[in-house]
Design a protein around this nucleic acid. Sequence first.
RNA 1: GGGCCCGUAGCCUAGCCAGGAUAGGGCGCCGGCCUUCUAAGCCGGUGAUCCGGGGUUCAAAUCCCCGCGGGCCCGCCA
Length: 664
Amino acid sequence: MAGASSRTLLEKSPHRLLARAVAEAARSLGAEIDPREVEYVVSESPDPRLGDYGVPLARFARRHRLDPGELAERVRELLQEEPLVAEVVEARGYLNIRLSAAEAARLLAEALRREGEALGLVKTEEPMRLVVEHTSANPVHPLHIGHARNASLGDTLARLLRARGHWVETRFYINDMGRQVAVMVYGFRLAGISSVPEGVKPDHYIGLVYAITHTLADIEQLKRRLEELKKQGRGDSEEYRETLRRLDSLVADAARLRERDPELFDRIAEAIKGRDPDRDISEIMRAYEQRSDEQLVKLFRSLVEQCLCGFRETLERMNIRHDKWDWESDLAWTSMVGRVLEEARRSPYYTIHRGAEALNLQPLLEDPVIRKALGVPEGYEVPPLILRRSDGTTLYATRDIAYTLKKFREANADKVYNVVAAEQRLEQLQVRLALIALGYRREGLNTVHYAYEMVNLPGQKMSGRRGRYITLDQLLDQAVAIARREVEKRSPSLPEEEKQRIAEAVGTAAVRYALVSVSAPKPMTFDINKALDFEQSSAPYILYTHARAANILAKAKQRGIEIDWDNMDHGAAEENPLRRRLAIQLLQYPYIFTKAADEQRPELLVAYLNRLADTFNKWYASGDSAVNEPDPAKRSLKLALVAATKHILANTLRILGIEPIERM
RNA sequence: GGGCCCGUAGCCUAGCCAGGAUAGGGCGCCGGCCUUCUAAGCCGGUGAUCCGGGGUUCAAAUCCCCGCGGGCCCGCCA
């Protein structure tokens, strides 16, 4: 069996080659340079005449007070021993290398022969046990585009880390203790029903009940306020007029909601008349937390479970499945939250803040190790964290501390990733600091807030409380419908069933791809027409390229042509600039993959996919056919390039949660 | 009031942490290419005061300071 593996490709990636050479050369001249420092700044050369990759060597020489000429000479000597380096070129402060495409092709072919479809997926030498919590949407309305960003990022992160060889468990935190769920349950009680009617997607119906109830409750509240103001003789105050304006807007929302199900709306509206919804809801919430009403507990659990069924159905379409589903209420009902409180009382950071039990987290920020690990700037002030209300009930953050510990314990985890919106930054920081305050330093420092910014729609802002949202189901349906039209146009002769299968795959893939294409901390405006643009830089483009590569291999097989590993003209990779570029780009994959995994940056994979597909399509269009190549040794080389491209596209798509297809 | 995130062509986006080579892509728009492995493709053209102003540096989209615009957070909410 041949020698090179994907790990070899990783070690021989231009980044690593240059970094090692520069670090070693510097050491021989008496200076210490961290190879990573060099690796970061390796870049592609702007002009092929200057080589393929380069590093601004002059700046390292300057920084470490070395003679630039001497350093360059040492680096050159080291690199010239490497068969993959065809030439060393110095230009404008840079030291560049031109790679030997023949050697790149040889290494690539060896790795491909040895690893087949697993090409490029280099396993880590330090596997860890990891938990990724993601999606965790409130079970009161259907998933919308914002949840889809969370779910896509979370699922991709989990798949990426698994591909890298870590043990990963995904979890969904079921937030059933909040006021929102109580509002939803209240609505079902008012409507006099205990489950979602047959034939309706449960999360959609629950979302409607929730929005109606929330809006009507708010209307009741505002009406009461207006009465009060009038009684106080403040009927012409600014507050009165402002309240009136808000009421108007709520009434408009209510009218829209009524249109969706007049009968349901009227029933809830009739039942809520003359009640004090705020008090009712608080009462329901308390009864659930204390488990004082068995019927009610059953209703809560059953409705939430129905909503989760809806979530699962939607997530399934996006190839997302969670390993574990954790109920927030289970934390409150068992001793877990109680134990957190006991431990807090023994902590030196325990304090009574305005009559409530709390943790004073500020002193922890004096420790620079903690600050650095949690990414907190110097001088940052963190407010005390209330753990228990004066009335004895616990808070979201308290339960979240217990939950984080549960995640560590049950999975015996080394690290926990929380894929949670950026707006929760403070709460996430407080939870991590609280863990440290309670003596769980390792857990606190190894909990990662994987933050992402909100997704907005081009029009108005979404609001679950008012039922103003585009559901993920609608979005996926729309995407599939667009894909279906395309399939119809391009492949009218395919059987109906296959057309639909392709449309489903392409449409849902387009949504996922678009969501991970934008880096997480960037706010996103989701324009459905743009996301579903089936042009370059989209899932359909990558899928098409994959299908194209698959088609070439299928055609070769049809003609009885196989890759002859022992008679392969690696040198042929040098003959054509596009073959050459493809070989070098493929060689780069293990480096990109490991970097994406180790830095948790799936968007690097998206960028790479676009570049690889681009090069492959250009090569394809240049007419340098693989199956029609008469020279068997050259043909083997070309087919190896096609196969490597196909496997790498397929593997990377799978990491993005997209199932590659052979035909489209 | 304090803090965090974002600001790159008409639109979207990479690069910023770890400063260096003419700021990469995509969409749009204009013009080409289907009797050879799939035209969801390819080729050519068009388009950027890198939000503004200072500073550090041999060198700034990138680092620092002051502003501007957008979003978010500062609850005994979740």
